[in-house]
Design a protein around this nucleic acid. Structure first.
Length: 429
RNA sequence: GUGCCAGUAGCUCAAUGGCAGAGCAUCGCACUGUGGAUGCGAGGGCUGUGGGUUCGAAACCCAUCUGGCACCCCA
């Protein structure tokens, strides 16, 4: 094959069968979001780099964003995440919006990453946020939305799990080990890496960062204490509420969950594939009570999460959760063309069917029936209409069902009604 | 941005320095008013790209692109 122009590295082509999965995922995201009353919104795909500079974390802005000058020389960013945009949009209309505010979005984002499985440079994200409430039960609502999304797409608690922690709890505990708040970003990073490193290497790394042996032992004890949540009234209430709404089976406490973004202030959570081999996190979120003030608004508490489409699609495919019937031809009927003499009659009949609300393929070229039936078969079109000289002479047409192979000849004026009834019965159209 | 592995027909892969192949798919015919099945036949390749070594390279070397794995980071 001659390759002339390559696609941009890390982008994906959505061929119809892939686009169908994407559309299906979008519909599930919409369904779950709306079931809790959240409203859909969208921000611009281009933002000023200043919006992220303050709060998203050094790495995300400096290393992972697509940044370029516009024609006036101003630095423009292809948005790497949505939360700062949301904060900006809310701050701009802070006085006129109605709180608590529940918004969701599903749109494209860009990060300059090394592409590999589960990670691309152009991807979609589901963002959902609850702004204006500061209670454990508000955090629980977001976690419950995740659990309900998993149920909606057919994932089970044996396959995926939502791990929850509280940064405030960790801060307090680290303080009592004599680790000052200023040093905590380093320690958080240390915690983040523990699962990926050999024990000895990790201890050495911790000592290189200036921790003493008793602090290291203290941190290890923290991270292995699955009951640490009992020291946090916030987490206690979250788990109690999840228990009450019968969703706790999807949730687990994990003191190792810290999250990378700088703006999280308290509750943090992350969902992972525990039954399979996809190591990347499915989604992550938490409470960010300072961000509104940081982008110039009045202080407003907020909680939310983001889920990328790439990892979840992989997992859904691995677990066989994607229904095969989502990829179907939009039309269930093909009106064949018999000959040059009958071509116009066929096209006219097809147009008539469409006017009756029946999605219909035409075959706007004269070729043998063999080929047209084979096309219908391969496209999984269940019904074909044959309109040859015999049918036309009798003012009729032949309708053939490719599923059972049966066919019958009926008066032409009855065809649209008959097809409407059949399709309504079989496909609930 | 770092390290490792891979790239051969539309797809999955074989050929390990000596004529580039198989299965599936595609197309044609049997079957010009009827799809799937079967049989027969055909097309399809600058072996990711560019250089080098060699009498000879898909194979060995260098570079580069793309993908995958582990880092980094994260959706």
């Amino acid at each position: 094959m001659k390759k002339i122009i390559y696609p941009i590295k890390g982008t994906r082509d959505f061929y119809p069968e892939i686009k169908a999965v994407h559309t299906w995922l979008y519909s599930k995201v919409r369904k779950v979001s709306e079931s809790y009353g959240y409203q859909e919104y969208e921000g611009p795909y281009l933002e000023s780099i200043d919006l992220y500079a303050a709060k998203s974390g050094e790495e995300l802005v400096k290393e992972q964003s697509f940044v370029f000058p516009d024609r006036s020389g101003e630095l423009i960013t292809l948005r790497p995440e949505l939360t700062p945009t949301l904060a900006r949009m809310v701050a701009q209309r802070q006085k006129q919006l109605i709180y608590p505010l529940r918004w969701w979005s599903f749109g494209p984002f860009w990060r300059y990453e090394k592409p590999q499985k589960g990670r691309s440079r152009e991807f979609f994200q589901w963002n959902i946020d609850l702004i204006g409430l500061n209670s454990p039960q508000a955090d629980t609502e977001l976690i419950a939305i995740v659990a309900n999304f998993f149920k909606e797409v057919g994932l089970t608690p044996h396959q995926v799990k939502i791990f929850v922690n509280d940064r405030k709890l960790m801060e307090t505990e680290l303080n009592s080990l004599g680790i000052a708040n200023n040093d905590q970003p380093t320690v958080f990073r240390l915690i983040d890496r523990r699962e990926k490193m050999a024990e000895g290497d990790w201890v050495q790394y911790a000592m290189d960062e200036g921790l003493n042996q008793s602090q290291i032992n203290g941190i290890i004890a923290l991270l292995e204490n699955k009951g640490l949540w009992k020291k946090s009234s916030n987490l206690e209430q979250i788990f109690e509420t999840l228990q009450a709404v019968n969703l706790m089976s999807f949730v687990e406490y994990d003191p190792n969950i810290i999250r990378g973004l700088d703006y999280y202030t308290s509750t943090v959570f992350e969902a992972k594939d525990i039954g399979g081999n996809v190591r990347r996190s499915i989604l992550g979120g938490g409470r960010y009570d300072n961000l509104l003030a940081d982008v110039g608004g009045e202080p407003l508490p907020a909680v939310g999460f983001a889920m990328g489409d790439v990892v979840i699609s992989l997992i859904l495919e691995n677990y066989g959760c994607i229904p095969p019937q989502i990829f179907q031809p939009p039309a269930k009927v093909l009106v064949t063309t018999f000959s040059a003499e009958t071509l116009l009659a066929s096209l006219s009949l097809a147009e008539d069917l469409r006017e009756h609300g029946i999605n219909t393929f035409s075959y706007p070229e004269t070729t043998n029936l063999n080929k047209q039936l084979k096309f219908a078969d391969r496209m999984k079109i269940p019904y074909v209409i044959i309109l040859g000289p015999d049918e036309i002479a009798q003012n009729s047409c032949t309708v053939k069902c490719l599923v059972d192979g049966k066919q019958e000849r009926i008066p032409i004026e009855e065809i649209s009604g008959k097809l409407s009834r059949i399709l309504a019965d079989e496909f609930n159209l």
